[in-house]
Write a protein that binds this DNA or RNA. Structure first.
Lengths: 145, 145
DNA sequence: GGCAGTCCATTCGTATACGCACGATCCAAC
DNA sequence: GTTGGATCGTGCGTATACGAATGGACTGCC
């Protein structure tokens, strides 16, 4: 016979930030992939590629910090983008530790489409909220750090 | 010579829900692990285990729907919790397809501590926001689906 | 010049997360 | 009673994500 469950009363998983953030993040990722059939980038790959295009020439580590990916993670993302011919890796003769990344012509060709898709995913993800709520939500999210 | 970057002007990755949600989610996960040394559950494992304790007896698939994990994902989570002796898997003689899950005594012993840790992580994650902002943020997050 | 501390990228191991396909089972309709 | 569709769990492949350890390279400081 089990002891009667000494349940932490009133605990509701559904009210916890962690649970809600996980669900919201999954939902956005799913929407992003749905609208991205054309370029077939994941949200993570898009973030990295967009930043490389914006910066033109970055160190792998520095890129990771810009897009919030640790060195172990960015390594795989860059490898896949390089395999697809969207990024070239060179080396800084001044600092032989670093991998210097730059976008290819294919990246420039792809990024406009990808940005449009990202904006559609953005809008879809926020669509349950009114315009004012969307603004407030984004402001709070930014403040979450 | 590269063509002058036909950059989608004014695009700011940092203003996109996907990017902000990914960062916020990572931050919470990191805080959760920090305060969870004692029970060593990941946020995902905690969610699953808490739900099993709450429901007492669930089908694996049904649990997955409750905690927003697809069948392939919940399978691994349950396997690890079972290996740790926190969950037992039995079978419903009425439906031989299903795996019926139930919490063990160890789960009951662990869950109170784990809930307290989860609440600390919750509070820490929300700490950049004022109490009013926290309420508003959670409401909006819930509305995001 | 040399050495300690730091920084960069990679690798390994583990944990989510999901699409897909599969075998087993159940159920509804015939 | 059989058969066709749905459901359940699993296995495989791929992509994030991160801690820890490693090897190579730089930088300060003496």
């Amino acid at each position: 016979m089990s002891s009667p469950p000494p349940l932490p009363e009133d605990f509701r998983l559904e009210d916890h930030v962690g649970f809600l953030l996980r669900k919201a993040h999954q939902r956005h990722a799913s929407l992003f992939v749905d609208v991205s059939a054309e370029h077939a980038l994941t949200p993570t790959q898009f973030a990295a590629l967009q930043k490389v295009v914006e910066l033109g020439k970055v160190t792998q580590n520095h890129l990771g910090r810009q897009v919030a990916m640790d060195p172990a993670t960015i390594q795989g993302v860059i490898r896949r983008l390089t395999l697809r011919g969207l990024i070239v890796r060179t080396h800084d003769p001044m600092d032989r530790r670093t991998a210097v990344l730059a976008p290819t012509e294919e990246a420039y060709a792809l990024i406009a489409t990808a940005v449009a898709c990202a904006q559609r995913a953005h809008a879809k993800a926020l669509s349950p909220l009114s315009p004012e709520e969307q603004t407030a939500f984004l402001a709070l999210l930014r403040k979450m750090g």
